[in-house]
Design a protein around this nucleic acid. Structure first.
Lengths: 353, 353
DNA sequence: TCTAGGATTGAGACCGGACTCACATCGATT
DNA sequence: AATCGATGTGAGTCCGGTCTCAATCCTAGA
């Protein structure tokens, strides 16, 4: 109907060659800028290419160079600003080196992740950046590793997997910030995470996420160092959607053994927790203290502004991308990976217990 | 050093064929599930494929089917949650139809956008979703359109470009919310946008962005309907980074002709404006009223919660993706595009002038 | 028993580039 | 004038699939 005379076939080197009256091989050389080509031929070919609006088919090129100049990124949820920012770091870095990025979202589901990795491999990406949904079930990544394709991990480590991981030292920062809470007199410190789990949390339980495990570890160590025991009943998992976050928050604040401080494991949870606190008529930090991971700009705008754990997310993305590209191009580590340290930014959401 | 015996060549149909003792053609048929294949052969081939862990090379497949099952997405800034959410809508929808997504960031620079489009075309994506940096300079999109490749626009329209655009009716919602402000007694209403421009805004000036133009149009209409004139001096462009946003905000609030209400054109600007207002010791809505575009969760957490214009961003992404896929697959419009209406959510940031 | 017509099958072309190899061409060397 | 190495050049292969085409195999109907 509106298709202007059937989508015309793409212009190929052969077409250019014919127009320039040279062999396909010569045209390819002139276009690809390799081999020996006389000035005369080069000019004619380039002119013809211009004239015909020739554009190389990257697919064909990839096929026999074996390089697609594309890296695959697998994350749990691009809607989460944490990943949005990391993604920005990745794409910026990739672009600088001439790589492009294919993004796949997994909704933090392992099956989707397995599938994503396979799909990207089938598309022959040059390497992958994965934020693994699980730090334990990593068979698919292990396999990927063995196939020889470059892989780096983002945000989380994976057990027994020989791959560079770009994440901050969670145990350390968690320890440090728990100390901060303890110093303010808090003992009933709650931790709320999206991490899914069949059973409620209990001491010593194995966790799917290294990140969460490390954070809990940091908390425990801080408590122990003071000769105290971390209240395991205040560790809450499965805070999937806003509804469950709110429900959990209210539970934590209820009863004689209520929490006096809550740590939100990420920005999405933080929103739910703070909203639930406000809706229940309580105030931060008078009724309950609050600490969250990730320093989003909006955390400065609430009353009071929120005390947060800032992670260099953009830099993590950058670092992951450059490390991956380095691997792809077979270069040995040039510069040691940058620091990637998290830090506690004290604002107004933590008060005395 | 650790490369386990040189990255082994990929397994191809030819390998599978040999293992199954059939011709390459038969193996391909069994694997690709087309043509006629006897049960016996099919079984042997499938078994051999399994055994050898055969995985088809999508690049090769794409090359002679002419389909890459990939769509390209070009946005200004994936770090902006607005696009993060839209992206989520796009990837979710794409996945359902078996498409994958290549993302390119342009930093809202036209040159980068032109380049992005070309690159995606070279990669032979099946179609593109573009959030055009400019609604005026659209030669590259025009060209794309003429090449016959499916294209849909996201978030913004482009002048004289025959392509479906998925965006809300900006003029309408802008008109409506300005009425709301006027009803509260505001006359000095400011509008702050990132849109870059050589000259400061002045009445009747042509703008690069249809989106902003429409919003200003809505504001103007609302004023005119009341027999008033929209104060053009309060329209501020070039609010690029947080610094300039703050500077502009302070300017707007200063002097005898200060603004009594500020409209922030997007979430990033909103953060800067609100922060500047707070830092200058003023309060919302007592000293100045505030309205912003996009209903992010954090807008409910500030004191007071912010009055916003909610856009169905996720749905816009979904709609854009399904429309594009429909085009790619040559189907005629089945369902009419969903509504995509923005709405004013009144919370506490608008008071009497 | 013979045969038409569908089911199977293998050889090979093809997609669009990159690249190998053998064969000129040509000015410089001796 | 014969020789040599450095270009130039075109024919043709290859990458890993899809797909056409002609040949072969079967089986039911006559």
């Amino acid at each position: 109907m509106s298709t202007e005379g059937s989508r015309r076939r793409d212009v190929t080197v052969a077409d250019v060659a014919k127009a320039a009256q040279v062999s396909k091989a010569q045209a390819a050389r002139a276009l690809g800028n390799y081999g020996a080509v006389s000035d005369d031929v080069r000019e004619r070919v380039l002119a013809a290419a211009e004239e015909l609006e020739y554009r190389p088919n990257e697919l064909a090129r990839s096929m026999n160079t074996g390089k697609s100049n594309t890296i695959g990124v697998v994350v749990g949820d691009i809607e989460n600003p944490h990943f949005g920012l990391a993604m920005r770091g990745i794409t910026d870095t990739a672009k600088k080196s001439g790589y492009h990025v294919i993004l796949i979202n997994t909704d933090e589901e392992r099956a989707a992740e397995v599938d994503a990795v396979r799909v990207l491999l089938d598309k022959r990406v040059d390497g992958l950046i994965v934020a693994p949904a699980s730090s334990v079930h990593t068979a698919h990544l292990q396999q990927l590793r063995e196939s020889g394709r470059p892989l780096v991990l983002l945000d989380r480590a994976a057990e027994g997997l020989d791959a560079e991981a770009f994440a901050v030292d969670m145990t350390g920062i968690s320890y440090e910030s728990t100390k901060h809470l303890l110093a303010a007199g808090h003992r009933r410190i709650a931790f709320v995470s999206t991490l899914t789990s069949d059973k409620p949390y209990q001491e010593g339980m194995a966790l799917e996420s290294s990140q969460i495990a490390d954070r809990l570890d940091g908390i425990r160590r801080a408590f122990e160092e003071e000769g105290l025991t971390r209240p395991a009943d205040l560790v809450r998992l499965n805070a999937g959607d806003a509804e469950s976050v709110k429900k959990i928050t209210l539970e934590l604040l209820d009863g004689p053994n209520a929490a006096t401080a809550i740590i939100a494991s990420d920005g999405l949870i933080a929103l739910g927790v703070v909203e639930a606190i406000q809706e229940s008529g309580r105030s931060i930090p008078d009724d309950v203290s609050f600490l969250m991971y990730d320093d989003f700009a909006w955390t400065r705008l609430t009353t009071p502004p929120l005390t947060v754990i800032a992670q260099p997310v953009y830099e993590m993305g950058q670092a992951a991308a450059s490390a991956l590209i380095r691997q792809i191009e077979g270069r040995r580590t040039s510069a040691p990976s940058p620091e990637l340290a998290a830090r506690l930014i004290v604002r107004g959401s933590i008060g005395a217990a």
